[in-house]
């Protein structure tokens, strides 16, 4: 199956690289919600995409999730 983000082969909808990045992205969301009091999933993705510390694979997944 082709990765929805990069087109590489993967076991599911995402390749191994982007699947792990998605796990990291999902794991960090509750920490952001707690940190700011409240934050929608969409706002979270926007913030992560803008953040210079975000790794490129995580950013690519965040962009794909935001645009889907």
């Amino acid at each position: 199956m082709k990765c929805a983000v990069c087109g590489r082969e993967g076991a599911g909808k995402l390749c191994q690289r982007h699947a792990v990045a998605k796990e990291r992205l999902e794991a960090a969301y509750p920490l952001w919600v707690r940190a700011y009091g409240r934050m929608s999933w969409g706002d979270y993705l926007d913030n992560v995409i803008r953040n210079v510390q975000t790794g490129p694979w995580a950013k690519e997944v965040a962009e794909a999730l935001r645009d889907s």
Binding site: R17, V20, A21, R24, L25, A27, A28, L31, W32, A35, Y36, V48, N51, Q53, T54, G55, P56, W57, A58
Partner: peptide
């Protein structure tokens, strides 16, 4: 490199 590319920052 993987740790860097998968990295999702958290605020403080």
């Amino acid at each position: 490199e993987r740790e860097i590319r998968e990295f999702v920052p958290t605020p403080y």
